[in-house]
Amino acid sequence: MDRHLLPEEIDQLLDGDVGFGTAPLKTHVRACAACRAELDDARALVRQLEHMPHFQPSALFADRVMAQVQVFVPWHVTALDTLRGFMPRTRTARAFAWGGFGSAALVLTALSLWLLTRLDAVIFAIDMVVGRVRAAVGSSLADMVAALFGSTAVHAFRTSGTVGLWMGLTVLLLLAAVTARAMRAVVTGPRRR
């Protein structure tokens, strides 16, 4: 190389570029005192820049930032955190808890499988329970209607079938609504005056 390094070439060496292009530049720097001085000078500047300190903002900077940040917790994170709240703290307690959950899951699975093999018995049992609940509710309603309107009304409902039952329920609800409104008017009336 029969000339001094160009500023871009000094930059190349300064940035530590590698490759066959930099080899002649390095050779030239070793031989040329002016270019070596130029490069040393540039390196000194870079060193000084790299040692420039960071400045510290005021002590309350982070608090002031956080006061303006809206921390939004997604629902799934809240749900997971709530679940985690129920988890025991110690490893032994956690092992016991997992053991308990596992056992319960096993028992429930076995029970479900057993019930599936006896589906007809399950259906029969459900029918029986539903029938008993229906009979108990019907009896309570009949008692209530008999107490309010007498046994004639109960007989009328029973003979009119489902339509009669619905009509009776509608009248009952209307009466309840009118009564509630009237009571409200009585209670709020004196206050308005």
């Binding site: 960071h54 510290q56 903002p57 900077f61 982070a62 956080m66 940040v69 921390v71 917790v73």
Partner: peptide, 23 residues
């Protein structure tokens, strides 16, 4: 995920470089 400690950590990590650059 809404972890306030994580927000504070990010502020703590970069308050000096960001403030220095701007200053």
């Amino acid at each position: 995920e809404g972890r306030e400690a994580a927000f504070r950590e990010l502020v703590h990590r970069y308050e000096r470089p960001v403030f220095s650059l701007i200053f």
